[in-house]
Amino acid sequence: MPLKLLVTVKRVEDPESRIKAKPDGSGIVTDGVNYKMNPFDEIAVEEALRLKEKHGGEVVVASLGGAAAMTELRAALAMGADRGLLVRHDGALDPGIVSALLQALVAAERPDLVMLGKQAIDDDQNQAGQMLAARLGWPQATFASKKESLESEAEQKKQPGVAVAADGKRALVVREVDGGVETLEVALPAVVTVDLRLNKPRFASLPGIMKAKKKEVREIPAASLGVELAPSVVVRRLLDPPRRQAGVKVADVAELWTRLHAEAKVL
């Protein structure tokens, strides 16, 4: 059965950029900061593409935010997604609003699976997928992973980690949980959020980038979706974390032991 997959793509600060709070705490310093697709979302896009390659169907990518998010949508289209949705909203969002906007997209698109990164690496909330599943009354499988490592043959062959049954009615999802690896079976439609070790995302090819420019991206004003857009998780100020001071370099193992034993008293 062909699958319709809806995948979220968030524009975030590049994790390699240096992030610090502004002195007045009103935001982060954005000078010299680059932007890219949330790395967890990149894994979600990759997984959706693999599922489409196996089962057929369509991969729709959606982003919520300002016009700049078009760059990340195009990046997902260049990886191979079929079309994009950009829900335009220039104000602050929180997981409650994000999940409500996504619920509206789901109502219009009727996907079999919604795939999201387990969290975005900017606000690190880890909530939107769970809240979306709750709003829809759908099963959820968070923190999707797989048993094979990223160096395994299964990964080389670009096999999907999420195992959708041939009839498209159910999926087996392997999850990373405290203390081990759990497998759940979810009835579709369902929400899956992905963890780091589900796959290694592909790079966009040059033809892929060219094709992406012609793919459809529909802009939808957030205000048209009937969702209350006032955030209820409000960041009042940002602070620098307590910094650890660099300690001392020790000459050798003997000195290390002495310091740990006599000075720090931890051995």
């Binding site: 600060e13 610090k20 982060i28 690190d124 998780v233 100020r237 940002l238 602070l239």
Partner: peptide, 12 residues
Amino acid sequence: MWAGNVIAEVEL
């Protein structure tokens, strides 16, 4: 937030 590079004070 941002992998612990920033601490946010949040109101619900």
